[in-house]
């Protein structure tokens, strides 16, 4: 259990750093969605299914969609 959680946290850290580093903003958004998704799984492991649901629906689905639409209207690559 502790092994799975630490693996997930490590993956989450990688995703967070990647979201900061990527120059391609679409990839950065996907990395940020990965962070949200793993956070939702961690909330579930911490026995907070209500928060996990909200995090998965808002963080991974809706925020990603809004960011993608925003990129469509602006530039895809960071200058």
């Amino acid at each position: 259990m502790i092994l799975i959680v630490s693996l997930l946290v490590l993956l989450m850290l990688v995703g967070a750093v990647a979201a900061c580093v990527f120059k391609d903003l679409l990839s950065a958004i996907i990395a940020a969605a990965l962070v949200s998704l793993i956070a939702a799984v961690l909330f579930y492991f911490l026995q907070a299914p209500d928060v996990a649901m909200a995090e998965a629906a808002v963080g991974a689905a809706l925020t990603t969609a809004i960011f993608v639409v925003a990129i469509r209207r602006t530039n895809r690559y960071e200058q």
């Binding site: 299914p49 209500d50 996990a52 649901m53 909200a54 629906a57 808002v58 689905a61 809706l62």
Partner: peptide, 10 residues
């Protein structure tokens, strides 16, 4: 688990 906010977002 869940409620108005979660269901609304879904």
């Amino acid at each position: 688990p869940g409620g108005g906010f979660q269901g609304g977002v879904v």
